[in-house]
Design a protein around this nucleic acid. Structure first.
Lengths: 383, 383
DNA sequence: TATAGTTTCGGGTACGTACCCGTAATGGTG
DNA sequence: CACCATTACGGGTACGTACCCGAAACTATA
């Protein structure tokens, strides 16, 4: 039995001051208030029926201005908050959401994201929410397009999507906007689109953070940035991380302790191709001290470094995949930067719910913490 | 691949009996709401009344063994999950919880914890839960004892406490156990007490993590551990961190690159006393490269280092207090280890709720992630 | 077999809110 | 002043579950 715990009331009210003054007595008051608050009490005080109070609460017509004001005053006075349990139970209203994310076959990053989506769904489905999941093939843009068309026919009340294919995602977003359907981007953003919210990493800053870690451990020397990506769209995101990383180095470089930055792009993502590319490059550049891999493919670099027993000082990459953690454990990888895919999925669905069902304000950007994961603390993190 | 949601309900579509009697719209609603799986449906299938189904669900007596089995089978078959909204609405049952944590005047660590508690309370109070907050004075053990006595008189259904005074907390725990009241420890544990759960940092491991960070940046040299605490109880917790830290150094020390560890205990926590103590110590030990402060008092060490413009390589401490963040921003502090007090408070209350109200299994230990906070990523973390 | 005691079960109402439907009050028009 | 359209409002039922109360069925005993 799962409870919709975090479903509602996401307001982070820090009005704790009163508590310091009256630590104990607060209960009695609230209990009292709990007993005689509610539409019935409002109706009694305003000398009207429950139905009229209900009309005021929901801004429906059919109430005289005098009565409306009187009721609103009482609502303010007793600080009425509707009982969502009863409310949602009584209204037979349902909502349909859809998510569009990559299929999880290739990586457990998207597996984690889907887990978060499921977790959110378990919590909110009792409130009369339905959720369809569309899992497209990252290697086949046409599946993305196909699902987009399906979704547009489905008349959903909200959409969560990972805009892996930027162009197509942008036009989908436009279509949603036309239909007044709120949409949420997770994992990566599409600039200049009026999404309900973006939930994901701050790419630039996470690269910047990687820079700090490398400089902290290296002091001076030569760093190699490794971009491994087949998809040109995804590549765009890697660039943002690279920018941040380079900027950090630039900001902190001094003549006495310089750090030089090299870079390699690998677009064939088979393991052999990656090993070959690294081998070729490193035969020519024997003085690389540290590696910054801009995504979860860091495992392939780790594999190379371990297999060749190549001397290196630092290896940093992204994401808590099982393979990556293995290399973290054996010391090949020094740091992993976590992007909380599970949390992204969870928040994506929840944000929609908060907006559509609970009518809450949603922050335009919800950046994930830039988790620094090491051999010493990884076991306290979930992906 | 699209996962068809309808599949979930496919099993229930064939029962035609009721459909003829029921108007189409009602059926439609039921289908939409996924409510062909409630007590009513079970009652219909078992050919009994709702009341009897209810008796089985709540293990009440007054049902023949035959009927009970039959109903249980149906419950299994359709995977019945009670609607918590309706359930909690119908039962007038209420629960009363209490929290006992330090007053937030001295530090915003406990402020954050209380925020988390409030956030949890906002979410669960509609389920008929009431919460009392007792905020004791960390400098006055008698307030702790006083509140403990108050709480024992209050006949609560559950308690969350920060066992700052170990002895007193332990005997309180015993008293709760006698009264069958579940209790949760947050922030620090009391060994050998059968608490519902412990929610807080893994002290030893967080010290171990600090060790990794210092070695990563320092390679070799001399480190000073700084324990600043007036309370002998709290001091015990600092020791656990120190142990972990020392163990890491021991595990990784090599003759070529040794790191030596010094230590200072400061028991007078006024700012002047701390400054004096540090000054005295460092006048005699001029070769300290790095500092590990075992709690949030790291700000005082940072203040000293900045004011004296003392050359140092690394400063690590605990907690995201505003002051600490200031020193993080200006580079005096290199790393802060976060212990998620807000999350601790939230989970403390929620765990109690899950256990008492929702009857869910709770993990015996819920360790917080050991967040590594830097100048580059702090803005993505809440305390 | 009548009676009392026990077990087993169903009807019905309540929880707090949503919303349909019917009616009284109001306003405007000839 | 009669008529109708419109506005303002109240009564009542439903949502899915909890639980009270009383009735039926069964068992045991004389």
């Amino acid at each position: 039995m799962r409870l919709p715990l975090q479903a509602l009331f996401a307001n982070f009210g820090n009005s704790t001051n009163q508590l310091f003054l009256t630590p104990i007595m607060s209960l009695r008051n609230e209990q009292m208030a709990g007993r005689l608050s509610g539409v019935k009490e409002i109706a009694r005080r305003a000398n009207v029926s429950i139905a009229t109070v209900d009309r005021v609460i929901h801004n429906r017509k059919g109430v005289s201005e005098t009565t409306r004001q009187k009721i609103n005053e009482i609502i303010q006075e007793i600080g009425f908050q509707p009982n969502i349990l009863a409310s949602r139970l009584a209204s037979k209203k349902t909502n349909r959401f859809a998510v569009l994310i990559p299929d999880a076959r290739e990586t457990d990053y998207w597996k984690a994201s889907l887990d978060g989506i499921e977790r959110a769904y378990q919590e909110i489905k009792q409130y009369g929410v339905f959720l369809d999941r569309y899992l497209f093939d990252l290697n086949d843009k046409s599946t993305f397009v196909k699902y987009v068309n399906d979704m547009l026919k489905g008349s959903y009340d909200g959409v969560v999507m990972a805009p892996s294919f930027i162009e197509e995602a942008a036009s989908f977003a436009s279509a949603c906007a036309d239909r007044q359907i709120p949409y949420v981007f997770i994992n990566s953003d599409v600039p200049n689109r009026d999404s309900l919210t973006y939930i994901g990493p701050h790419l630039y800053q996470s690269g910047y953070q990687a820079g700090q870690l490398i400089r902290f451990g290296l002091k001076q020397g030569k760093v190699l940035i490794v971009n491994i990506s087949k998809e040109i769209d995804a590549y765009h995101h890697l660039l943002r991380k690279e920018e941040g990383f380079r900027q950090y180095m630039e900001n902190t470089n001094t003549p006495e302790a310089p750090i030089r930055v090299e870079k390699i792009d690998i677009t064939n993502t088979t393991d052999e191709a990656i090993q070959d590319a690294l081998d070729t490059f490193l035969k020519e550049h024997t003085d690389i001290d540290a590696f910054f891999v801009t995504n979860s493919r860091v495992k392939s670099v780790a594999k190379y470094l371990r297999n060749t027993a190549r001397q290196h000082r630092i290896l940093i990459g992204y994401d808590l995949s099982e393979e990556n953690i293995e290399y973290l454990k054996d010391g090949t990888i020094d740091f992993l930067i976590g992007q909380k895919p599970e949390e992204q999925g969870y928040l994506g669905v929840m944000s929609l719910f908060q907006h559509v069902v609970a009518d809450k304000k949603i922050a335009k950007e919800q950046y994930m913490p830039i988790d620094i994961i090491t051999k010493e603390n990884f076991e306290f993190y979930k992906n």
